[in-house]
Design a binder for these strands. Structure first.
Lengths: 213, 213
DNA sequence: ACCTGAACACCGTTCAAGT
DNA sequence: ACCTGAACACCGTTCAAGT
């Protein structure tokens, strides 16, 4: 016989895991409240007991994926460039298993970055030598690029018709891009060190206040 | 009296323009076949005479926006860095007026880049001095980053709750990012010139063929 | 050729009800 | 507390029919 509780077996974790399974197998378009419920052998409205609405579910699903990215940190046996490269490529490899989800990661406040991940990211660039405000810009830049790359690849893997000219593969684009991101950041770091008062190298236009990452 | 034809006034251009208006005013979530039809004073199914389905409509809408980006070209009075900067910032400024559309730009084959735009992009990086295969990587890198940035900003402008720490504005992130992209590309160009046989600076892993941009 | 009208399948979600 | 069942509003789309 089973343990004490056999009905009441539905849990939030099971809902999130089933959702991730659906996204992995059928893409994010296959993720419907009804499909999640069916996969768990339950009525669609049962899910709503654990989740406010579909946006809420998507947030939880994205969070679970993003947590698996781990925290960006300097490693004692390698330079910061290699640490960052490994971190970004790992994000790319993990995300591309869940087709279409990157769109929703990007639509999350702070790119699905938990306070913990953000703090680790800022600490990383602080250790590297970026001034505080530039650390945020650098972290955002790296993460924004890799999510852009993931989104593009997500589509291309669904469109076999698109030619890969010059024999270039998806990995070539990521590696070139990540290298360019890193060398770009190296140079921004040098610039910031030379001119500690400004964080970009040309005067910027005035604009009404907005709220970025 | 009106010109010869007064009924039969529905055109593909009117459909695309009405769609862009809806996206500009209500975001891409407001763009429904029914809303487009209603805006044009017509039955939902009338639109289907000019358009295969909603994906087709989205493609046409994205194309119209992307055409407005113009062609990337070297200007006689400025260096390639400033040309590229102006081009990318212009893409960012135009795209952000159509909330949520960037997602669908990214989901288009080749990022909504027409053959004409692609050719101009490749020619630009070829002129700058990139070897042929790197020109494609460089173009893709720059465009991928700016679309990532656009997607992130699209969300943030809808979420006033997200704090803009350190007083940073959306434009600060774009300008830092575009600067980093450009300095990154400068360095990649130097690397390519020094070692003309490889286009990245570390050995790459083997992987099954895929089809990137 | 160009457009209407009714209908279908599917979705997220509300609401009342069951245990 | 946890879940069901019926219903609603909205969507993309098919299909037959009108002019």
């Amino acid at each position: 016989m089973a343990r004490t509780r056999r009905s009441h077996s539905l849990t939030l974790d099971a809902i999130i895991d089933e959702s991730l399974r659906i996204v992995r197998d059928q893409g994010v378009t296959g993720l419907t409240m009804r499909a999640v419920a069916a996969g768990l052998g339950v009525t669609p409205m049962a899910v709503y007991y654990y989740v406010a609405d579909k946006d809420d579910l998507l947030r939880l699903v994205v969070d679970k994926l993003c947590i698996s990215f781990g925290l960006l940190a300097t490693a004692p046996d390698q330079d910061w460039q290699d640490s960052l490269r490994g971190y970004l490529v790992n994000m790319w490899e993990r995300s591309r298993r869940y087709p279409g989800l990157s769109t929703h990661i990007i639509n999350q406040p702070g790119l699905g970055v938990t306070p913990e991940r953000l703090e680790a990211g800022l600490a990383f660039f602080d250790e590297v030598g970026f001034p505080p405000s530039d650390a945020r810009l650098a972290w955002s830049f790296a993460v924004t690029y890799i999510h852009g790359r993931i989104s593009v690849d997500a589509h291309l893997s669904r469109h076999p018709g698109v030619t890969h000219l010059d024999g270039l593969k998806a990995r070539d684009y990521v590696e070139f891009g990540v290298d360019a991101v890193i060398t770009g950041l190296e140079e921004m770091l040098e610039t910031a060190r030379r001119t500690p008062t400004t964080n970009t190298r040309y005067p910027r236009a005035e604009e009404p206040a907005e709220r970025p990452l």
